[in-house]
Design a protein around this nucleic acid. Sequence first.
DNA 1: AATGAATGAGCCTTCATTCAT
DNA 2: GATGAATGAAGGCTCATTCAT
Lengths: 244, 244, 244, 244
Amino acid sequence: MSNAIPAEPRASQAATRRQLLSAAAGVFAERGFRDATVREICRKAGANVAAISYHFGDKEALYSAVLRETAPPPAGGPNAPGNAADATLSAEERFARYIRNFLFQIAEDGPDCLHSRIMAREMIEPTRALDHLVNDFIRPQHQWFQGLIREITGPGFTVEEIRLIANSAISQVLFYKHCGTVIERLHGSALLTPARLEMLADHITAFSLAAIQTLALQRGPVQRTARPNRALRPSTPSRTRLTR
Amino acid sequence: MSNAIPAEPRASQAATRRQLLSAAAGVFAERGFRDATVREICRKAGANVAAISYHFGDKEALYSAVLRETAPPPAGGPNAPGNAADATLSAEERFARYIRNFLFQIAEDGPDCLHSRIMAREMIEPTRALDHLVNDFIRPQHQWFQGLIREITGPGFTVEEIRLIANSAISQVLFYKHCGTVIERLHGSALLTPARLEMLADHITAFSLAAIQTLALQRGPVQRTARPNRALRPSTPSRTRLTR
Amino acid sequence: MSNAIPAEPRASQAATRRQLLSAAAGVFAERGFRDATVREICRKAGANVAAISYHFGDKEALYSAVLRETAPPPAGGPNAPGNAADATLSAEERFARYIRNFLFQIAEDGPDCLHSRIMAREMIEPTRALDHLVNDFIRPQHQWFQGLIREITGPGFTVEEIRLIANSAISQVLFYKHCGTVIERLHGSALLTPARLEMLADHITAFSLAAIQTLALQRGPVQRTARPNRALRPSTPSRTRLTR
Amino acid sequence: MSNAIPAEPRASQAATRRQLLSAAAGVFAERGFRDATVREICRKAGANVAAISYHFGDKEALYSAVLRETAPPPAGGPNAPGNAADATLSAEERFARYIRNFLFQIAEDGPDCLHSRIMAREMIEPTRALDHLVNDFIRPQHQWFQGLIREITGPGFTVEEIRLIANSAISQVLFYKHCGTVIERLHGSALLTPARLEMLADHITAFSLAAIQTLALQRGPVQRTARPNRALRPSTPSRTRLTR
DNA sequence: AATGAATGAGCCTTCATTCAT
DNA sequence: GATGAATGAAGGCTCATTCAT
C-alpha cells in the first residue's frame, strides 16, 4: 500500500554526493577551506545543510574527499599530464610537452583547475589533507619528471642534483600560478590568454633546457656529444614563435 | 619619594602601536587575514581589543599598516636586498649575491620573514592591500633585477624577453617559499638549514646563469665572448666571496 | 510505547517565529530600535540569538516584520478601527465612535498597543520602515477619516482645509499617546483608567465637532442648518450609545 | 621663571563647558540620548573626550545640564513664548499669538529648537531628567495657558475641563512636531515653510477658538454675551489668509 | 587643568553542527 | 533517508569611562 517509494532516492543519494563534491571543489578553490561555508556549498549543490554531515561527516571530511576524489582526469597516462609520456618523442620534446601541458592545466579556469587551485592554497596553508595529496599526486609526478630530467642530463648527476634541476623547471611554471595576481598588477595586463601561455611555455622550455644542457656540458661533456646539435637548440622552433 | 617609574606610559603610546604591529605580523603570517582574529593579536601584543580600533581604525587598516611598516629592512641599498648593488662586483656576481640574499631573506624564520609570508598569502588570496605592495615593494625590485639581467645578457633582448628571464630566475627562489611545505613532505627533511640554503643558492645561480648565457650566446654570441670562462662558472667565485 | 509527545517541534517552526515577533514588538516598543538588543528579544522569546538571523535575516528585517505583521487587528472594517464605518450611524456618531476607538486602541497597554508605541517612536526617530507604515496603514486611515470629516462639514472646504481639520482632530488623540508621560507628571495621576478615557473621548469629540460645525457655519451656514441641534450636542448620544 | 602660564586656561574652562553644552544640545537633539556619542559631542565642541567626565561627571549628567541650562531664551516673559502676555491684547488675540509663537518655536530648526526636540524625545522615552523639565518649564507654561483659556471661556468650567481644552489646543501644535516626519511622507512636501506655518497657526487658532467659544455658549451663553461678535469671529483675519 | 591612550563590556552577526521530525 | 529549525560559540567593532601623564 505504501508504494509511494520513488526510484529517485537511491540514485539521488549518489547524485547528491557527487554534486556536493563538485560544488565543494569550486567553493574551496575560490574561498579556501576556512572561508568556504557549508551553506554556500550546499546551496550550489542544491542540497540541505545537513547533507554534508550525512554524507561526509563534517566540513573537513568533505574537504579531504574533494582532494581525494576530484583529482585531475588521467589525460595521457598515469604519470604525466597530457601525452607527455609518448615514447616516440625525444626527451627534450617530452620535456617541452610536459611544461606546456602543465602550464595550460594550471592556468585555465576550467573545472580541472580547481584541484590545482586548492593545492596552491595547501602549500601556503597546509591542512592535514596535504600529506595524502603529496603522496598520491605530487610525488609520482615528481618522480616521473626527475626521470625525464635524467634522460636529458645523462648520468653524472646525483639524485639531489636532479631534484634541484626538476625543481627549477617546475618552479617556473608554478610561478605563474602562485604569483599570477602580482604579475597581472605588475604588467597591467591579463596573463592567461592562450597566446601568452604558448609564449610562456616556449620560454620556460628554452630557458630550462638551455640551463640543463649547459650544466650537463660542464659536468661531463663527453656523454652528451652524441647529439649536441639538437641539445643545444631546443628552442629553435620556440624562437620563431617568440618573434611574433 | 614619588620619583616612581615614569616614562613608561609616555613611551607606551608608540610602544603599544609597535607591539600591535609586531603581533599582527605574526598572526597574519600564520593565519592569513581572514582567519586571524583581533583578539589573538591583541592578546599577543598585551593590549586590549579596542586598541586596534584606536590605533589603526579596524582590522583591515591594521593589516595595511603591517604590510607598509614591517617591510624588510633596507640592507645595502634602496632597491635590492643585501649589498647586491655593490658596483665593484661583476653582474654575475651581483646576480649570485642577489639570489642568495633573496633566498635567505625568504627562508629564515626571523621577524623579517613575516612580510614575505604575508606576501605569499596575498598572491593566493589577494586583498586590497596588494596593489600598494606591488607598487611600493615588488615593482622597484623587479625593475632593478631586470636591469641586472640585461647587464648579463647584453643587448639584443626585448623588454618582454628580459622580463621572462627575470621571472624564471625569481621563480626558482620563490618556489621554496611557496611550496616549502610540499617539498618538506616530498623529501622528508627540513629544508631551512643554512647549509641547504647555500646549496640552493648556488644551484639557482648556476642554473639561471647557465640558461641566460646560453640564450645570449644563441641570440648574439659576439657580445659575450669577452669572458666566457668566468661566465660559465659563476658559482665558484660567488661561493667563496659570499660566505660570511 | 514510542507514542511520545510529538507535534511540538512541528508547530515550533511557526511558533518560534511568532514568539520572536511578539517578544520583539515588546522590546522595540520599550527600548526603540537601536537600543533594543537581539539578546533580550531572544531571551524573552525563549529562542537562540541566531534564531533571528534564521527566521528574519537580521535585526532590521525583524523590525520591519514586527511593523508589518503585528498590525492592529481589523476590528469592524478594513479602513477604520472599531465599527466606525457602520452606515446606520450619522457622520457625527461615526466620528465620535472613531475617536473613542482610536483613543482606546492607543491608550491600552495590551499587545495591540505595541504597534502604536513603535509608531510613536518612528515619528520621532524615523527608520526606513516608516515609508511602508505610512503607505500601508496611516494613509488609508487618514483618507477614510478625511472623507468622514467632509461628510460633517459638507461641501465648501478645500482638500487642504479638510486635511487641517482632520489633523486637528487626530492630534488631540495622539497627544495622549505622545505626551502621556508628561501629562502623568503634570497631573500626578494615572491617565489610562477607562473612566478617564471615556471622558477624554467625549471631550475630544465635543471639542472637535464644535469646532467643525462652527467653522462650517461660518463658511456656509446654509448647508448644515438641517440638524444643528444634534450637531451641537454630539457627545450626548455618543455617550449613551457607545457605552458598552 | 615659569611664566609660561597663559591667560587662556581660565577663560577656556568656562568656554569649553559652554561649547560642550552647545554641542551636546545639537547631538542629543539629533540622535537622542542613547545614540548620541560622547566622542561626537567632544569633537564638535573641540574638546577632549575626557572633558565631559571632567566638567560634568558623565554622559547623563551632561544631558541633565543640557536640559537645565540650554532652556529656550526668555522672550517676552517668564511664562510664555513670545510676547503673548501683552496685556493690551484681548484674550483671543493673546491666544492666537501664543499658538503662532509656539508653532514657530517648535518648527524652526534654529538653535532654540534643540530644547523642544529633546523634549519631544523625552516624551517618548523619558529619562530621569523629565521630572525637572516638567516642573521647571512645562508646568508653568501650562498653568499660564490654562489661565488664558479660562479668560476666554469665562467661569463655569471646572479645572479639569479647562485642562482638557488646553490640551486640545496644545496638541494641535505639538502634532506637527511629533508627527512631522509622517506628515511629510503623507503629503509628499516639506512642512516647515514659513508660509505653511502661518497657515497652520491660523487654522489651529480658528479651530480651537471656534470650539472653545461654542462650548462656552453651550455651557452658559449668558456670561459671554459681553462681546459675542468678536468671540465668534476670531478667525476673520485668518480666513483672509487662508484663501491665498 | 587637561590630555589621549587604554580599558572591558557589550553590540549584531555568522558559523558549523545537531536533532526531532 | 533527508530535512530545516535550533544551537552556542566566536567573529569584528563601538562605546562610555578612566588613569597616568
